[in-house]
Design a protein around this nucleic acid. Structure first.
Lengths: 235, 235
DNA sequence: ACAAAAGTGTTGCGTGTACACCCATGC
DNA sequence: GCATGGGTGTACACGCAACACTTTTGT
C-alpha cells in the first residue's frame, strides 16, 4: 500500500561541525566542497541521508569518510530548514557537532577531500547557512559542556590538568584560576593520576591523568539536578 | 539546473508534544489520528513539512490547526529518523514541544479532531514511536526549565506563587519548600505583584503576579553563565 | 478561637573565589 | 639561586536549605 501519496518530498541532509583542540585554540575542520552547486567553496562536511540509515547514522558515516574515525562523540545541534536556504533545491539539513582528538586524526586523514583546520572564530566564508550552523554548534557545545564533562573527548587518553584548563578557557573565552580549577576537577573523581609527568611545557612538569570512565559515563548520562535556576547571566 | 538528481527523497514530518497545566497535574494533548495508516489510534498531533515552509513553520501551523493558538512557545526536542520507525514508508519526524495556557485553549479548541488531555505519565498506547517522543520531550522540558524560566508559558497572565510552585513540583516530581521558593522567585525580579488576591485556594489568599516581560525575555534569551559544573546528580 | 495557608526572619552549612604560599625543576 | 609554572592551604562571601515564627482570613 502506498500511504502518504502526493506528499511533497524533501531532500534530507546532515552537516558536521567537527571540533578539535590543538592545545592553543579550538578549531573546526572544513572541506572544499566536491559537488555542484558551489563546488570548491569552503563548507562543512556533509551528505544526504540514505534510505537505509538514520540521520545520526548518516552523520557518523560522513564523519568516518572524512576522518577515518569511529566511536566519536556526536550530538545534534540544530535543524536548518528554511525553504530558501539553498536556492537550487529544497534541502533540510540536520547538524551534528563532533568532538575529536586531533592526535588520532592526524594519521588517518582522508586525502579524498581538501580538508583544513580553522580557528573557530576565523573561518573563511562558507556556502549556504553553514556559518549559522557553526554559531549554533558553538552555543550548543558551550551549553552541553557546562552540564556534562564532554570536553574530555577533545583530548588524548593521557592529558594534564593545565591542558584541560586551557581547553575550557578556549571554549568559553574566559580566564580560569588554574589552582581552583585543578582542585575542583580532582574532587570530582573524574580523573585518575598517572605516574608520568609532562615536562614539555614547564620545568616542574604536570602529572598526566586519564579519565575514570565509570564516573565519566555516569556523569554524561545523568541529568541535571533539576532545580530552577534563574540566576542566568549573559556571556 | 537539477543538482542532487538521484538523491533519495524522504518524507519529512513534524510532531508536537503539547503540554498544559491544569493546576493539579502536567498534561499532554493527544488526538485520534485522522489518516491511514493507523487511523483512529491515539497519536501526537503532527503533519508533513510542506515545500514552502520550514519544519518549525510546519509545527506552528499544525499546532494552530488543532488549538487555534498562535505565538506559542515551541522548541525542538528531538529527531526521530530510524529507517524502520514507520513500516509502510520512510518518514523522518522532527518533534517540537509546545507550552500552552489551557485557560486560553478551552475556548478555541478545534472540533475537527478528537483531542483529549492526558496526564503526562498516564497516556494511552500510541502509534509508532510517539511514546519515545513524549519521553524525550519530558527530558527536554526539564532541562530547559532548569535553565530558563519557560514554565510561565503554561500559566495564565495572572498567577499566584503557590500556583507556579506546584507547577515546578509537577514537572520535576519533587516537593518544594514553598517559603524558600517564593523568596527566590521574588528576588529574581521576574514577577510583578498585583493588588488582587486569589482567595479560592486559601483563606488568607495569595497575591496575583504577572510576568516582568523585560526581565523574562532577557533571561530566556541569555545563555548559561558557562562554567563547568560536574556536580551533576541523578534524578 | 482556631485552623490553614501565605509569607518573613534567622541561622548553619557547603561551595566557589581569591590569594598567599609552598614545591619541583631547568638554566 | 632564581625564574617559572604546578599545586596546596586558608579565609571570606554568598546562596541555599531548614525551620521557627508571624500574618491573614473563613468558619
Amino acid at each position: 500500500m502506498d500511504f502518504y501519496k502526493g506528499e511533497p518530498s524533501i531532500l534530507l541532509a546532515v552537516d558536521c561541525i567537527i571540533f578539535g583542540f590543538n592545545g592553543e585554540s579550538l578549531e573546526i575542520l572544513l572541506i572544499k566542497r566536491d559537488l555542484e552547486p558551489e563546488r570548491n567553496k569552503w563548507s562543512l562536511m556533509g551528505g544526504f541521508v540514505k534510505p537505509e540509515e538514520s540521520p545520526e547514522g548518516a552523520a557518523t558515516r560522513v564523519l568516518k569518510k572524512l576522518t577515518g574515525l569511529e566511536n566519536v562523540y556526536m550530538d545534534n545541534c540544530g535543524i536548518f530548514g528554511d525553504p530558501k536556504r539553498e536556492s537550487h533545491r529544497r534541502v533540510v539539513s540536520i547538524t551534528y557537532f563532533a568532538l575529536i582528538d586531533t592526535q588520532q586524526y592526524q594519521h588517518i586523514i582522508s586525502d579524498q577531500y581538501e580538508a583544513k583546520w580553522f580557528p573557530l572564530d576565523q573561518h573563511p566564508d562558507l556556502i549556504f547557512d553553514h556559518k549559522d550552523m557553526i554559531a549554533a554548534a558553538k552555543r550548543e557545545l558551550r551549553t552541553k559542556a557546562a552540564l556534562y564533562p564532554i570536553l574530555f573527548e577533545l583530548l588524548p587518553d593521557k592529558f594534564t590538568i593545565p591542558q584541560i584548563a586551557s581547553l575550557y578557557e578556549c571554549v568559553y573565552n574566559i580566564q580560569l584560576d588554574k589552582r581552583n580549577f585543578s582542585r575542583k576537577l580532582l574532587a570530582s573523581d573524574l580523573i585518575i593520576k598517572l605516574k608520568e609527568k609532562d615536562k614539555e611545557n614547564s620545568k616542574k612538569g604536570a602529572f598526566y591523568y586519564r579519565l575514570n570512565t565509570d564516573i565519566y559515563k555516569e556523569k554524561i548520562m545523568s541529568f541535571l539536578r533539576y532545580l530552577p535556576s534563574w540566576s542566568v547571566e549573559n556571556e
